[in-house]
Design a protein around this nucleic acid. Structure first.
Length: 279
DNA sequence: CTCAGTACCTGGTTGC
DNA sequence: TGCAACCAGGTACTGA
């Protein structure tokens, strides 16, 4: 469940469900999820007795602000958080449980075990990996056209790879990159340092719009089981190219095609997103 | 330094 | 039907 709008939806849900709860203890069933501190027992120790005071987000990262600790978590491909009563049956693939003093618990579930958690003394999360590497969110003031165009000028990678690079702009993933490039009318294999300022502006504007609309819709739910409340997104109804191969483009009627770019499944309208300008 | 390829995992789908 | 290969909303690491 993981691009910016989905993580933001999870954040809002957990803010409702978990704020003010005190962690009594932490159970860890797959240690590789815990990245910092290295020692899982130290991680458990840091969180014990801490109360959840706020829940923030940067890019695709959730940041739980506790009394003295910041817990930074990334859901990667399939990570999910949910708050449950402690006696509710524990589904498969539950790898970390934060037991609260009130008899409820926050569970981290992740079929592919790709997700990550980092715990830091409060304040240190912002100056350490992984957060330190992130560029601005699309709608941050820092994501100016000038900033974006300068970044594009410095690389010969294609636009798909550039928009997936979280150090340039944080929060876009495979779905929203395809949607933003389609709305901007730019082919994903266009080389970044060949883009005009006008093309950069179209991509920037499309990225911001797509992300904001998706947040309003509660994110995108595809290929997902019915799960915790945070997952029910509606933006899949607004997708124009992602997963739409062999359907007709809403602009020109040309069939949407699927290809591989930068190792990722990529959806385009070949008519609206030409790689080379014709006649 | 940049960048393409691979590793990390499991499970659903596709195709022989 | 059986089963191997491929695919999946992501990123860290490796080595050229």
């Amino acid at each position: 469940m993981p691009e910016l709008p989905e993580v933001e939806t999870v954040r809002k849900t957990l803010h409702q469900l978990a704020l003010g709860k005190e962690i009594k203890s932490v159970s860890i069933y797959w240690e590789n999820i815990i990245k910092h501190p290295r020692d899982p027992e130290e991680f458990q120790h840091l969180l014990q007795g801490q109360t959840i005071r706020d829940i923030n987000r940067k890019g695709k990262f959730l940041i739980f602000q506790l009394d003295d600790i910041a817990l930074v978590s990334h859901l990667r491909m399939e990570g999910k958080f949910g708050v449950y009563d402690s006696h509710e049956e524990k589904p498969a693939h539950t790898h970390v449980i934060f037991h609260f003093t009130d008899g409820t618990e926050l569970r981290y579930n992740d079929v592919r075990k790709f997700g990550t958690m980092h715990a830091f003394p409060k304040g240190e999360e912002a100056v350490n990996k992984p957060l330190i590497q992130l560029g601005p969110d699309p709608f941050d003031e820092a994501f100016t056209l000038n900033y974006f165009h300068q970044k594009l000028k410095k690389t010969k990678r294609n636009m798909k790879a550039v928009l997936l690079d979280q150090s340039i702009v944080a929060g876009l993933g495979n779905i929203y990159v395809d949607e933003a490039l389609f709305r901007a009318g730019v082919h994903p294999e266009r080389i970044a340092n060949t883009l005009t300022l006008e093309e950069a502006e179209r991509i920037r504007n499309a990225s911001i719009r797509v992300i904001l609309e998706a947040i309003e819709q509660g994110g995108t739910t595809i290929r997902s089981y019915l799960n915790s409340q945070g997952e029910i997104g509606m933006f899949q109804q607004k997708l124009l190219v992602y997963g739409k191969q062999d359907t007709n483009c809403v602009n020109c009627g040309t069939p949407i095609t699927k290809m591989k770019v930068s190792g990722r499944g990529t959806h385009i309208c070949p008519q609206c997103q030409p790689l080379h300008t014709h006649g």
